[in-house]
């Protein structure tokens, strides 16, 4: 009746010498489980600092998945911009706002149930879609991919080098990415200015030294009071430099 020894026995008896293991798949399984597991942990956790930490692990493992899929440049980009930049920024924000009552704000039980139902429904739909197309389930064998860093760089300046250039029908031509690249550059500049404007230091009414002394350690009573009532508390954050 005991199922566990039977499964264990089956595992041992199954014709699976170690040589049959596909290491690519094994590492995929490893990264995928870390990625998905910690993504779910982000949802399940209440403490916002832990959420940030789980998110770091999840996105780091996703970078590993990118490396496995042959997208080396993208994986390094993910590590550098996402994990090293965006998430550090996020953790920075968490730490600036991490006062005791704000660290763990819990949603209501009704919300959780609703979100769970919607989530499971959505997941079922997406999984069904993932397995519905046959070519997506058939892996390629023995493909040696060219490293993609150079083609990506060239495509960003508008030249595609990853396709047969001569004699190919015009319909198969793929465009370069010069214009999107420029647009994104301008966009980043605008965002930079905008973010600096939003988080800038407002006009000060008190001398800076006093203000910094006051803002470094927000009195616990103020924070509690503010979280119960609606008063605007007196001290701004260190980053923004003051109250409006």
């Amino acid at each position: 009746m005991s199922a566990l020894p039977m499964i264990a026995g089956a595992l041992i008896a199954a014709p699976l010498p170690v040589a049959a293991i596909n290491w690519h798949s094994l590492f995929f399984l490893l990264f995928a489980s870390v990625s998905c597991g910690f993504a779910v942990a982000v949802v399940a956790a209440d403490n916002v600092v832990r959420m940030a930490f789980y998110l770091v692990l999840s996105l780091g493992a996703t970078a590993g998945l990118f490396f496995l899929a042959g997208a080396e440049f993208l994986g390094a980009m993910q590590l550098m911009i996402y994990v090293g930049g965006t998430l550090v920024l996020l953790v920075f924000g968490v730490m600036l706002t991490a006062q005791a009552p704000l660290v763990a704000i819990k949603g209501s039980g009704r919300d959780r149930v609703l979100a769970g139902i919607v989530g499971v429904a959505l997941l079922a739909l997406l999984l069904q879609a993932a397995f519905s197309v046959k070519p997506w389930r058939a892996p390629a064998a023995g493909v040696v991919a060219e490293p993609a860093a150079t083609p990506i760089g060239m495509s960003l300046v508008g030249v595609r080098v990853d396709e047969p250039a001569v004699g190919a029908p015009a319909a198969n031509k793929r465009p370069g990415y010069m214009l999107p690249f420029e647009i994104v550059s301008i966009h980043l500049l605008v965002v930079l200015v905008g973010a600096a404007y939003l988080a800038r230091a407002k006009r000060r009414k008190v001398p800076r030294a006093i203000e910094v002394a006051a803002s470094v350690e927000p009195p616990a009573s103020v924070a509690e009071h503010a979280s119960i009532g609606r008063e605007r508390h007196r001290s701004g954050s260190v980053l923004a430099g003051g109250r409006p």
Partner: peptide
């Protein structure tokens, strides 16, 4: 890669 991974140390 080296620069990116080095940046994670700050975490």
């Amino acid at each position: 890669f080296v620069i990116a991974v080095l940046g994670i140390e700050v975490f």
